[in-house]
Design a protein around this nucleic acid. Sequence first.
DNA 1: CTGAAAGCGCTTACAG
DNA 2: CTGAAAGCGCTTACAG
Lengths: 336, 336
Amino acid sequence: MRKPNVTSTDVARRASVSQSAVSRTFTPGASVSEKTRERVLKASTELGYRPNALARAVISGRSGLIALLVAYLDNQFYPVVLEKLSRSFQEHGYQVLLFMTDPGRQDEVVHQILQFQVQGIVMVSATLSSTLAKECADTGIPVVMVNRYVATSSASTVTSDNIEGGRMVADLLARGGHTRIAYIAGAEDSSTNRDREAGFYKGLAEHGMTTIGRAVGGYTMEGAAQATLDLFSKDKVPDAIFVANDHMAFSVMDVIRNTLSLRIPEDVSIVGYDDVPEAGWKAYDLTTISQSPDRMIEETVSILLNQLENRAVRKRAAVIPAQLIVRNSTRKPVEF
Amino acid sequence: MRKPNVTSTDVARRASVSQSAVSRTFTPGASVSEKTRERVLKASTELGYRPNALARAVISGRSGLIALLVAYLDNQFYPVVLEKLSRSFQEHGYQVLLFMTDPGRQDEVVHQILQFQVQGIVMVSATLSSTLAKECADTGIPVVMVNRYVATSSASTVTSDNIEGGRMVADLLARGGHTRIAYIAGAEDSSTNRDREAGFYKGLAEHGMTTIGRAVGGYTMEGAAQATLDLFSKDKVPDAIFVANDHMAFSVMDVIRNTLSLRIPEDVSIVGYDDVPEAGWKAYDLTTISQSPDRMIEETVSILLNQLENRAVRKRAAVIPAQLIVRNSTRKPVEF
DNA sequence: CTGAAAGCGCTTACAG
DNA sequence: CTGAAAGCGCTTACAG
């Protein structure tokens, strides 16, 4: 037996009150007498009534929906962020509309998003074309990009202090006595890669050093494996590699140990970036930089909710301090 | 400059047609002349009109929303499933509403879900109380539980053939010449654990064998680490362990190698379940059972969409064949 | 093919 | 506090 959808009118009839009274009962802060409220609640339970959130959204202009755009989840950093973000929005009374985007097809997806009257958009490691960013801004929908930075955009950004993070890695490797340092890049066009690399070179320069090699892994494990082989096919092989993120670093470590039969950290030190859960697993025990996902999420939610409540607020760019996590994939600096 | 929301009426006015004509232009299959359509489209572009999907949902009774309930994402199996499911629903024209649930608070969450008039619910490794399952059934909202099975429920289920999977593991270990075999369980009350364990014992029995020990890891890495220490603190230590899932198996392997200083597979063989991406990483190279997530997702989407289109369809229980993936965490059977 | 009109389920001034 | 009424943006018979 399938119940036809129960509406506020049905409840009103049963409780012998007006439809408005039913609506008020389910509107926090609306004025209803205790007696009316009780009758409405009783009738609602009996009929199995549940307010239609969609109709409410249409009339109130507040959908309670936040769109979350994610490009891929194989790098464990994203599930972590996704889970924390979702929980946080839920706790604040918002629902999360999830969109998996393909690079390049993001604009198409955003069109769908806008149809659903989302109140805000969070993009994780994905960037919005400037046209679309403007479109959102015009519509008054705040956009926060997490882990990516686009200068021209009207969107807010939340990123780790990638430049400082890169610098810290350089410092650790330099003080560890490494002399043949290499870098494995992520996607060349990503702001995270640019900043981590820039900070890394800056940090090396402070020690009067530079890299002996560079290869591009494109943020994939396969790319990183190939990049590693490339670096070790040269005359001068690295004694330390900074890999643009942990996800690639695991692949680099596997190749170094299993294909090249070298020891970590005795022959080569490896440093990653992100401090994803696997970095703490003993098989890798990877020295890395924590992006402090908790703080990133906190900032993201706070920026977005602020903009929802006070539409005058301008975009913001939050930079979360980087934190060095020293494990055993790197030789210890002498001072340690 | 913030555009006020553009509505179909605005477009109608600009295009000098009726509001109905605008609506029809955006309704696939509705009858509009080419001339009208063009005028509407032109006006829409000029004004930046986008149909309000929420209003459409209210009137048509089809929200186009599917709720996805996930309990946690730290086991990489879930992000994989989540990503594939989302993409598949998107491709079929549905949007995904994501809910992270806490065990025990699932009913509360489902109440919110129902308010959003979702057309279907997919629960990944989460179970619905029977009360709530009935509530959904009454409302005519199909529910599919992935990776969990509840006999009494009116929900459809999609699971790996966990019994056969467990049996295959037993067979592999028995034929590998192991004589002191142990089992590390997941959450005792989960159907996946029950079935994997039952199949495992059944398979051992076929070889006239049984286990020498059993410990409970509760599907967490910490629990699995402790379970491993417990098993190795007995007089008779295992030479093979079947761990209820890969996520725990990684922790087991770390403890065996780093804390107990034993070799895998020379001293102990390890088998997991799920074939998550990390199982293929060389540092673990874990023998495991693939749940064939692609096929699980395919079944899930197909069951749900079928029920949406033809409400007469009853619940279904799909069982996906298990597939043994032999890597190097296990001693090879003599026949190999 | 087209427009006027009714209606989806709700919120929210408005007047009492 | 309460109800009648207008209205959110849309779809969909209905009559032409």
